[in-house]
């Protein structure tokens, strides 16, 4: 069963490649972001463990000592994130291409994605509009919830109603995300335009709602379960400074990133399979 789960139908190299690129970039940014801190910590007899000692005093000292560096560091990370997001607007067809056809090389998938950039940008624009609407709906629902709750003057009800609105908006955003994945898969697997792919994705969601949503939810949950497990482990090991604890946590955190890319690949492979089957029918 584990073997079946791990199998990506000949796409392991691609999964490893994408995860490696993501981690390499993260390490580069991590090094850049912490360069000033590590220079200070390297002089300390306790090294990075200073972050966990003295009840936050040393951490506070570090933050104050390098206060001038936070703005450029945040700007660097922000620019990197925006650049990464922009790159994936153009490369957003890679996973659907790889999912639709086993054995495609990474660079071929990238080239195909770039060739279909206008379609991908069109789909991203529609999805972006949907995300904005979901966020607005969440905001509006929060206000409504608080107004309704205020009539009862129950502070717990006020807070809970405010909280309920956001999961609802989150669910809406998730639906849009699933639709976006489906639309990209249709566009890349069957050469459809943005509008045609949008319609095909919506049609598939309506025709096979249970299978599509359940599979999307399953893969999504797996990816989040990895993050949750790592957070729990981090809770246990965060303050421990032994080499074994540090290495274990680092390894697990790298596996989380790999596991997330792996789950996404499996999802797109499943979508590719469904679209191919529908085409055969």
């Amino acid at each position: 069963m584990i073997r079946a789960w791990l199998s990506t139908g000949g796409r392991s190299g691609v999964v490893l490649g994408i995860a490696a690129i993501e981690m390499a970039l993260a390490w580069l940014l991590g090094l850049a972001a912490t360069a000033a801190l590590t220079r200070t910590l390297a002089h300390s007899p306790v090294g990075y463990q200073a972050l966990h000692l003295a009840g936050g005093r040393w951490l506070g000292d570090l933050l104050a000592l390098h206060a001038h560096a936070w703005e450029p560091t945040a700007a660097l990370l922000g620019v990197a994130l925006v650049a990464w997001a922009a790159a994936w607007l153009l490369l957003g067809g890679m996973l659907p291409v790889l999912g639709a056809t086993a054995g495609v090389r990474l660079h071929r998938a990238a080239a195909e994605s770039l060739r279909r950039a206008p379609t991908l940008l069109g789909l991203a624009a529609i999805a972006g509009l949907g995300f904005a609407l979901a966020a607005f709906a969440g905001y509006a629902a929060t206000g409504w919830g608080e107004r309704a709750a205020a009539l009862r003057l129950d502070v717990r009800a006020i807070t809970l109603l405010g909280w309920v609105a956001w999961p609802v908006a989150g669910a809406l955003a998730w639906l849009i995300g699933v639709w976006h994945d489906l639309a990209r898969a249709h566009a890349m697997a069957r050469g459809k335009t943005a509008l045609q792919a949008s319609g095909a994705a919506a049609f598939q969601m309506v025709r096979n709602p249970v299978a599509t949503m359940a599979t999307a939810a399953g893969f999504g949950l797996v990816a989040w379960a990895y993050v949750g497990a790592a957070a729990a482990l981090s809770g246990l090991l965060e303050a421990r400074t032994s080499v074994a604890a540090v290495v274990t946590l680092a390894v697990v955190q790298h596996l989380v990133v790999l596991g997330r890319v792996h789950a996404r690949m499996k999802w797109f492979a499943w979508l590719g399979g469904r679209i191919a089957a529908a085409k055969t029918e």
Binding site: A26, W27, A33, L77, A230, V246, A250
Partner: peptide, 19 residues
């Protein structure tokens, strides 16, 4: 003193953000 674990932690959070 070793400081690599700090970089590893930050890299992980950055990787999650990138993801």
């Amino acid at each position: 003193a070793p400081t690599l674990p700090l970089v590893a932690r930050v890299a992980y959070w950055v990787a999650l953000a990138l993801g």
